[in-house]
């Protein structure tokens, strides 16, 4: 066989630290994931003036776009919902509050934003399950020194906030090159999704869509649903 000259890209002689590089990448990724969970949490708390201003200033959509860019081609699915969210700017606070209360407050079209409402049907005693769930969640939060408002433990806002906190802790650990702690925190996020938020968010999202199609909360819950389908991995039942 004749020898051929093979044209290969030139390489320089400076050797990187691959673990340092990996930590840098994952610091950025976990920070972005924290941002997404943080916004999901804020969006499911009752709206206040700061929230409305953040939406009107396009801070919500800009930060969500930026925080999902690491997903590459998969970002497209989320961008569609982010674009729809952008169409709900300029509403006054009173309208936000009315919409929030219509969906999640005392209302005929009530959509429960609580895990306890979705987890009792496969057992006999609803109240017992809710108590057990609350205790289990409190234990999870206490492990990390967190104390949510009593009665709020199983709400979508608090569960997303907890995940945001875990992602922030993970970010700090990647930045400090504390690999084992960072890995453990990532696994704990996954466990929390599998045991709690990921189990009921799909149904919650469907209920929001049924009760308030094309509203801000419809698109916001759909965004959350698609996002959680990426986060949950195999077995997520939320996105058709």
């Amino acid at each position: 066989m004749n020898n051929r000259e093979i044209n290969l890209p030139a390489s320089n002689n400076v050797v990187d630290d691959p673990i340092g590089r990996a930590c840098g990448i994952l610091t950025s990724v976990s920070r972005s994931r924290a941002t997404i969970y943080r916004w999901l949490s804020l969006g499911f708390y009752p709206p206040d003036r700061e929230w409305v201003e953040a939406v009107n200033r396009e801070q919500l959509t800009a930060e969500l776009t930026d925080a999902t860019s690491w997903l590459g081609a998969d970002q497209q699915k989320l961008l569609l919902e982010i674009e729809r969210l952008a169409g709900h700017q300029r509403s006054p606070l009173e309208e936000w509050q009315a919409e929030y209360n219509r969906l999640f407050g005392k209302s005929i079209q009530y959509v429960s934003p609580r895990e306890g409402s979705y987890r009792w049907r496969d057992v006999l005693h609803m109240t017992e399950t809710t108590d057990n769930l609350t205790a289990a969640l409190q234990q999870e939060y206490h492990q990390f020194g967190l104390l949510p408002l009593t009665g709020m433990e199983d709400t979508v806002a608090v569960e997303c906030e907890f995940l945001a906190y875990l992602c922030e802790r993970e970010t700090e650990n990647w930045a400090a090159h504390s690999m084992s702690s960072a890995r453990e925190l990532r696994q704990q996020q996954r466990n929390f999704l599998i045991n709690h938020l990921g189990l009921w968010f799909p149904e919650f999202s469907r209920n929001v869509t049924d009760c308030a199609a094309d509203s801000f909360y419809d698109h916001f819950a759909s965004f959350g649903n698609i996002w959680l389908s990426f986060e949950y991995g195999a077995g997520y039942l939320g996105v058709a």
């Binding site: 673990i19 990996a22 994952l26 990724v29 690999m179 960072a182 890995r183 453990e184 990532r186 696994q187 996954r190 990426f230 949950y232 991995g233 195999a234």
Partner: peptide, 28 residues
């Protein structure tokens, strides 16, 4: 080094293997 679920690991022979049954799909 970054796999949170130990789905990616190295055998004694230096071969890096991936166990999809342990993979949580984080894509790290």
């Amino acid at each position: 080094e970054v796999c949170p679920s130990t789905a990616t690991y190295r055998l004694e022979t230096g071969v890096v293997v991936q166990d999809p049954s342990l993979c949580i799909g984080c894509r790290y």
